Simulated scan of single mutants.
Amino acid sequence: MNSDDMRTILGVIGNVTSFLKFISLLPRIWETWKYKEELIYDYHIPAYRVIWCIMWVLYSMPFVHPNSILVTTSNCVGAFICIIYHIIFFLIFKKARRSMVAEYIVEFVFLDGLTWITLAAFDSHSTRSGFVGFFCDLFGIIGSFSELACTIDNVVGAVVGFILLLLFAGYYCVDRFRTIKLSPIDDC
Rank of each mutant, 00 (worst) to 15 (best):
S3R: 11
S3L: 15
G11D: 04
V12W: 05
V12I: 15
G14Q: 03
N15Q: 06
N15G: 08
F19T: 13
K21L: 15
K21S: 13
F22W: 09
F22I: 00
I23W: 05
I23H: 09
S24E: 04
L25Q: 12
L26A: 01
P27D: 02
R28H: 00
I29M: 09
E31W: 04
E31P: 00
T32E: 07
K34R: 11
K36P: 02
E38N: 11
Y41D: 01
Y41M: 02
Y43V: 03
H44C: 00
I45H: 03
I45Q: 07
A47Q: 08
Y48H: 09
V50N: 05
I51F: 10
W52A: 15
W52M: 15
W52K: 13
C53A: 14
I54Q: 08
L58D: 01
P62E: 11
V64P: 06
V64S: 07
V64G: 05
V64N: 03
P66A: 11
P66G: 05
S68A: 12
S68H: 01
L70R: 08
N75I: 01
G78W: 00
A79E: 03
A79M: 10
A79L: 02
F80G: 14
I87W: 04
I88L: 11
F89T: 01
F90C: 00
I92Y: 06
F93A: 05
F93Y: 12
S99A: 07
M100K: 12
V101Q: 03
Y104K: 06
Y104I: 10
I105G: 03
E107G: 08
E107P: 00
F108R: 08
V109A: 12
F110I: 15
L111T: 08
L111Y: 07
D112W: 08
G113T: 10
W116E: 12
I117A: 08
I117V: 14
I117H: 01
T118C: 15
L119Q: 14
A121F: 11
H125Y: 08
H125G: 03
S126A: 13
T127A: 13
R128T: 03
S129L: 07
S129V: 01
V132E: 11
G133A: 10
F135G: 01
C136R: 01
D137T: 09
I142R: 00
S146N: 07
L148S: 08
T151G: 04
T151S: 12
T151P: 03
D153Y: 10
N154S: 13
N154Y: 10
V155K: 02
A158L: 05
F162C: 14
F162E: 14
I163M: 13
L165F: 07
L167A: 02
L167Y: 13
L167D: 06
A169I: 11
A169K: 15
G170A: 12
Y171L: 12
C173W: 01
V174M: 10
R176Y: 05
R176E: 14
I180M: 09
K181S: 05
K181W: 06
I185Q: 12
I185F: 06
D187T: 08
C188N: 00
